[in-house]
Design a protein around this nucleic acid. Structure first.
Length: 751
DNA sequence: GGGGGCTATGGGGGG
DNA sequence: CATAGCCCCC
């Protein structure tokens, strides 16, 4: 077994451990993927049937790479391993089992825009103020509830949640959640969270022993990036692996120091809980780094030590001291772009780097623009990841919406999108009436217009008849033929052809590319479906195609063109990737760390882990940069260099540069808000001067400042620990008393 | 009743 | 800088 020879001691132990729970704590670049893939290969070599192995990864890309590497050890039978993201694997299962949880097998998937639009509709129905009930904020609450396995009913009964919502002046979120849940169900649609939540329901309710079926199929379960799983994901894993008679063949691989997704519910608690749930767990630590040279590894270690708590580990490397870190200081975001681009040119010449060796990592997508400009100016080929993915472009979504309604006529969000596109004279008034009737009767909009409840005639009737033709076609034709028919008959093609502008032509190209993609899917890119026996079942259906692409990110998209490009992406996207030379840019207070995180120690720690992820992407060259001013939210802002920069020792930098700009910055640090920006409150405090105090320190009688409500006095404190609530009388008289949960509040004590 | 153009508003990370 | 809501015109 030659593959074992290429492993170090800890790696080999983890690979060879056959049965029972295994936990691998793996530092960056420590061969984590190698262990995971070889472990699977080893299981297969030892006689485990490939399709009895389930490997859940974080990205499609990781799953693909894993499958390829397994195949390189065990051959093509490795293809039969169940490998994919939580969402994609569960979508495959749910498609087969949908009826057991009252969903149609051709359920569609609501993307973020669909979800938001549905929430907005509900807000309108409930006559709630869309400013007070911001759709994104409401959706975030719903998503978080689902990720924590809180049903609408539980949400309504939970006192903490109710208190929190009342405090935020959104007391009716529980009601919105209930309606949202019902409406998704009614539309035969699942949002991203539902792919997990409904999977849980499926296993939990165990209709026709479906849980035992999957416990039988998944004899070995492996989870990558376990630190990024949420409560719900772990609950599903437990249903699959923790039951009487189970061998507990569960392997988790992760690194607490790289946990960067708590904002979407990921919790490191899962790692602690895992040790309790599976007390016999064998733990292996991978601490040798095979990716980066000494200065980079040491800088990373130094940074992460500033975090409150972590599983003790020290990453080390044998790759030599290597290059020191470089620092770029710019006076503006534009200059930062210019300096980074010219540094890249210099690097390429001096160290013979290729474009593909280089990445620029930033905190927010909005930062990419400046770098694009300057890279273009230097004639450097680059690719921006994480912007609008191909499938999110309007012209593509339009065609997809037709296909969605074709497979699932109850998909209201898709129906709303296409019913009057291209323009066919079905206007707002008609739509409002239909929508209102649908809500009143608790059925889909399609049901209203086709049932005779609404007297469809003329243009609307023609639309219905057209959709019926598509649906009939879909019964025996393949996905590609249906899509071609849709593009032609819907009028989309004509519409796109008529637009001869440059953008119009590229839209037509995208539409064609989509059709090509569907053709490819039909011909070979098939999705495997559930199979308990030895037969391989493939899903070439239109519904299968739609589910598949709904879960793709643009990291997964094929690059037809020259593959030798500089990569531009957020640090989140870069997780799991590595580059010879990495530029981490925009290292400023209020950007990295984000202004939304600087008030909370927990969130600051997460920002630090994010920075840790960023610097550990680099193999040989690491450059850090910041700008003392940048254009942000329509105004120039001045920020200090990131606190994270000071956490790296000088010795790791290539010149002894002073890393805090010593020049005194122009005052004021923050330009005043644009005048007449209407809000229900005026910010009372200059955010730049605001430094929240730790919640524990807040006590009765104190003078405090709140970013929104201004100055006030704490008149009472009740509740204990996590649930401490302060009653504060804010300046401004009569009804300015508020109760604020200290766990969430950002208050600064006035000295 | 439907369509088009203007203005106000909000803006983190992602499957 | 993109999107939603609003107003006005046909």
């Amino acid at each position: 077994m030659s593959y074992l020879n290429s492993l170090n001691e800890a790696q080999r132990m983890a690979v060879q451990h056959m049965n029972g729970p295994v936990m691998v704590i793996a530092g960056p670049g420590s061969g984590k993927t190698r262990v995971l893939t070889y472990r699977i290969a080893h299981l297969i070599e030892q006689g485990v049937t490939p399709h009895h192995i389930l490997a859940l990864t974080f990205t499609n890309k990781a799953a693909r790479e894993m499958k390829e590497r397994i195949a390189s050890v065990v051959g093509s039978k490795g293809d039969r391993v169940w490998a994919g993201t939580f969402h994609s694997v569960f979508a495959r299962i749910l498609r087969v089992e949908a009826v057991k949880i009252n969903y149609p097998p051709a359920f569609t998937i609501y993307d973020r825009d669909d979800s938001k639009s549905l929430v907005s509709d509900i807000l309108r129905e409930m006559r709630l103020d869309p400013k007070q009930y911001n759709a994104s904020a409401v959706l975030a609450r719903i998503s978080s509830a689902k990720s924590n396995l809180i049903t609408p009913l539980m949400y309504a009964k939970d006192e903490d949640l109710q208190l929190y919502d009342r405090m935020n002046k959104r007391p009716l979120i529980y009601e919105i959640y209930q309606r949202y849940y019902d409406r998704c169900m009614q539309a035969g649609a699942m949002d991203f969270d539902d792919l997990l939540l409904q999977m849980f329901r499926l296993l939990q309710e165990n209709t026709d022993h479906v849980r035992e079926k999957y416990q039988r199929i998944f004899q070995y379960v492996l989870v990558d990036e376990f630190q990024d799983t949420n409560y719900l994901q772990y609950a599903i894993i437990k249903l699959l692996t923790l039951y009487p008679g189970s061998q507990h063949n569960i392997t988790i691989v992760g690194d607490d120091a790289q946990s960067i997704y708590s904002f979407r519910g990921a919790t490191i608690e899962n790692i602690l809980q895992f040790e309790k749930d599976f007390p016999e767990v064998a733990i292996y630590k991978l601490e040798q780094n095979y990716r980066s040279t000494e200065h980079i590894v040491q800088a990373a270690n130094k940074v992460i030590q500033n975090n409150q708590k972590q599983i003790p580990k020290l990453i080390w490397t044998e790759l030599g001291s290597g290059q020191r870190l470089r620092m770029i200081k710019a006076v503006s975001d534009v200059e930062e772009g210019r300096l980074v681009a010219s540094a890249i040119v210099e690097f390429k010449n001096r160290f013979h780097l290729e474009n593909k060796d280089i990445a620029i990592l930033y905190r927010t997508n909005a930062q990419s623009r400046v770098f694009e400009e300057h890279l273009r100016r230097q004639n450097l080929v680059y690719r921006v990841f994480g912007g609008l993915s191909f499938y999110q472009r309007k012209e593509v979504k339009d065609i997809l919406a037709y296909l969605r309604v074709t497979v699932n006529e109850r998909d209201n969000e898709a129906l709303k999108r296409i019913i009057n596109y291209p323009k066919r004279g079905i206007g707002k008034t008609t739509m409002d009436q239909i929508a209102e009737m649908a809500v009143a009767q608790g059925v889909s909009m399609w049901a209203i217009i086709t049932s005779g409840a609404y007297n469809a005639k003329g243009k609307l009737l023609a639309f219905i008849q057209m959709m019926e033709r598509f649906r009939k076609k879909a019964i025996d034709a393949n996905a590609y033929d249906v899509a071609v028919l849709v593009a032609r008959e819907s009028g989309i093609y004509e519409e796109l052809r008529e637009d001869t502008s440059i953008e119009g032509m590229s839209r037509l190209e995208n539409a064609n590319a989509l059709l090509d993609g569907i053709k490819e899917f039909v011909e070979n890119d098939v999705v495997e479906t559930v199979d308990e026996g030895d037969e391989r079942l493939l899903d070439r259906s239109l519904a299968g195609y739609l589910a598949n692409i709904a879960l793709l990110t643009d990291l997964d998209e094929k690059t037809e063109e020259e593959p030798n490009f500089i990569s531009l992406m957020t640090t989140h996207t870069a997780k799991g990737l590595e580059f010879k030379s990495v530029f981490v840019v925009g290292l400023e207070e209020n950007l990295f760390p984000s202004y939304l995180s600087v008030g909370s120690p927990q969130q600051l720690d997460e920002e630090r882990r994010l920075f840790y992820v960023a610097i550990t992407r680099a193999k040989a060259f690491l450059t850090l940069s910041y700008a003392t001013s940048r254009y942000q939210f329509g105004q120039f802002r001045y920020n200090d260099p990131s606190r994270f920069l000071e956490e790296i020792d000088d010795e790791h930098f290539d010149t002894t540069v002073e890393r805090r700009a010593k020049v005194s910055l122009p005052e004021p640090k923050l330009l005043p808000d644009r005048p007449s920006r209407k809000r229900d409150y005026e910010p009372q405090v200059n955010p730049a001067d605001f430094k929240p105090s730790p919640a524990e320190k807040i006590a009765e009688g104190m003078e405090v400042v709140h970013l929104q409500f201004g100055r006030g006095r704490v008149t009472a404190i009740d509740g204990a620990r996590e649930n401490r609530v302060a009653t504060i009388l804010f300046d401004g008289g009569d009804d300015s008393e508020r109760r604020i949960m200290l766990r969430f509040a950002k208050l600064q004590i006035v000295e």
